[in-house]
Each structure stands twice: as C-alpha cells, then as structure tokens.
C-alpha cells in the first residue's frame, strides 16, 4: 500500500502535465512505473501528484530525417518490436537483456530509466555511446540536452521539477555496436556496463565511441581516438590500450551494496573489451 494520499493525473498534453508538476509540492512523472512505484510503496519517495505519460502521445518510435525519436512512453518491448533498421542495434541488444522478465520489458521505459539515473542501470551508458540528445519540455519552453551532460550524478539528472523528458533523439549513424555487462545474479542490477558504437564517418572510415556505466556515478565516455578510422584488430596491444584508457578516464568511483568502487574499477576494462569484441564481431558479419 502506498501511504501517500497521491492524486493520479493522466493529462492529454505535455503543457498540462508540466503545469501540474509546476504547481505540485511533490510531483513525479510515471513512465513505466517499474522504479517509481516500488519506491513509493516502500515510502522512499513521497509523491502528491503522479503524472502519467499514457495520454501524452509519446508512445511512438519515429524516424525524423537522420535521427530516430523515441517517446517517453516507449517500452523496451516496443523497441524490440520496432521494424528492422528503425532503432540502433545497440538499443535492441540492451532491451533484450533487461532484467525482470518480459513483464518488465513490457512495462519499463527507456526515458524512465534515464530519468532515474541509477548508475548501474543499462540505459545511461547506452544513451551516451549513441550520442543521444534528450528533448525536454517544461513550463518555460523546450530545451535539448546531450546525454553526456544530462547525467549529473548518481540518481541526479538535469531536469527541473516542472520538466518532462518527452523524447530521445538518436542520430541514425550507427554502423555496428557491441554491448556487455557484468551482473552477479539474474535479477540483480548490473555492476558495470559497456556500450560500444562504430559510426561510419564522412571520409569512408569509422568513428568509434565507448561508454562505461556503473563504474562511476555517471556514464563515462572513453576516448578511442587511438583506434583511428580504419577497422581495428583487437590484439593484445589494442586491448592493453583500451584497458589503460578506461582506467585513465574513470573518475570518482561508484560503490553500493552490490560492489565497491575498487571492484568496479577492476572489471571495467575487461567488460569494455567484451563490448568491443561484440562490436568487432558485428562489423565482421
């Protein structure tokens, strides 16, 4: 039983949703509810006004020029069911591995996970690796924030109390991707995640991106410039350089009941290499 006497709102416009949030002492947006509702049930989060996205028309995945737009109400299952080629393969790989069974994939949303910003969740590093922009609307208008700037700290994001993330805008430039994560049991949060992307560049080569999740409070982009623009070979020298770059890039480490920061630091390099191996495999195929 949720103890707070909350009021449920299902407005039909984002403007109305923002007005409700702005006027509330303690408002919250419900996307899939998979994180927020248990927190309310456990009385960790007291919400007076719960604003559901269900009627906001934000449940679509759309192509817009050379980007794909993913609405705030889009679930992991809807990502998996999107027509082939519409969403980057990194998103489908990640969505397929979401913990909690088909039920959670049916209910959980990418935007909801991004807004919660659990350092150990799958979504943040993936959004950074894909160079995603979050489209945000509030009572004072709209704005756009790159994923790398959106995540400000553990469970902290660049989002005002009257604001809603309406869509994710992802450049459709992914040529191949790789994803890997370490978790200690099936139903647990990941300890460390790694998302790798190879995007075709205008000169006919490749631009590589790698982001590490779970090791620090926010997802960390790792410089892979040394790989150049050609196909890389994941030999011992390259692997050593990747591991070194990961270690050099990690800042303040994240610890929680699942693993201390020192452990996360040690496994980040190997998980990054696993993601790059998947990327290499996808490029070969």
């Amino acid at each position: 039983m949720i103890r707070t006497n909350l009021r449920y709102h299902a407005p039909f416009s984002v403007e109305d949703a923002c007005r409700i949030l702005a006027a509330s002492e303690s408002g919250a947006v419900i996307g899939g509810g998979t994180v927020l509702l248990p927190r309310m049930t456990r009385d960790e989060r007291s919400v007076l006004d719960a604003v559901h996205v269900r009627n906001l028309g934000l449940s679509e995945i759309e192509q817009a020029g050379d980007t794909v737009l993913i609405g705030a109400g889009v679930t992991y299952t809807e990502v998996l069911e999107a027509r082939e080629g519409l969403v980057p393969s990194l998103l489908t790989t990640m969505a397929r591995g979401i913990t909690g069974g088909a039920q959670i994939r049916n209910q959980g949303t990418l935007v909801g996970s991004a807004a919660y910003a659990n350092p150990g969740s799958d979504v943040p590093a993936v959004l950074v690796a894909l160079d995603t922009t979050l489209l945000i609307q509030g009572t004072r208008g709209t704005r756009e924030v790159r994923a790398a700037q959106f995540f400000r700290g553990p469970f902290v994001v660049d989002l005002g109390p009257d604001e809603i993330v309406t869509q994710l805008s992802i450049p459709h430039a992914e040529g191949a991707s790789g994803y890997a994560k370490l978790k200690l049991s099936e139903s647990s949060w990941p300890i460390v995640t790694a998302a790798a992307v190879a995007a075709p560049s205008t000169d006919g080569g490749w631009r590589y991106r790698l982001a590490i999740g779970g090791a620090c409070g926010v997802p960390i982009p790792v410089d892979l410039g040394f790989l150049g623009r050609d196909r890389f070979e994941l030999d011992a020298e390259t692997a050593g350089q990747v591991r070194q770059n990961v270690q050099d890039t990690l800042g303040e480490l994240w610890s929680d009941e699942l693993a201390p920061g020192s452990y996360r630091q040690q496994v980040a390099g190997p998980i990054a290499l696993k993601a790059l191996a998947h990327l290499d495999q996808e490029m070969s195929s």
Binding site: N5, L6, R7, Y8, H9, A10, P11, F12, D16, I20, L21, A23, S24, E25, G27, L48, D49, N55
Partner: peptide, 18 residues
Amino acid sequence: MSTTQPPGSAHAHDELPS
C-alpha cells in the same frame, strides 16, 4: 483520476483523491 483537478499543493487530507 484527474485531468482537470488542481494538483495537490496540500491535498485536503481528509479527502482521499479517488
């Protein structure tokens, strides 16, 4: 459910939103 009721800056707690 509310699409029109004002948000609860301080709900009248004797009245449970229903």
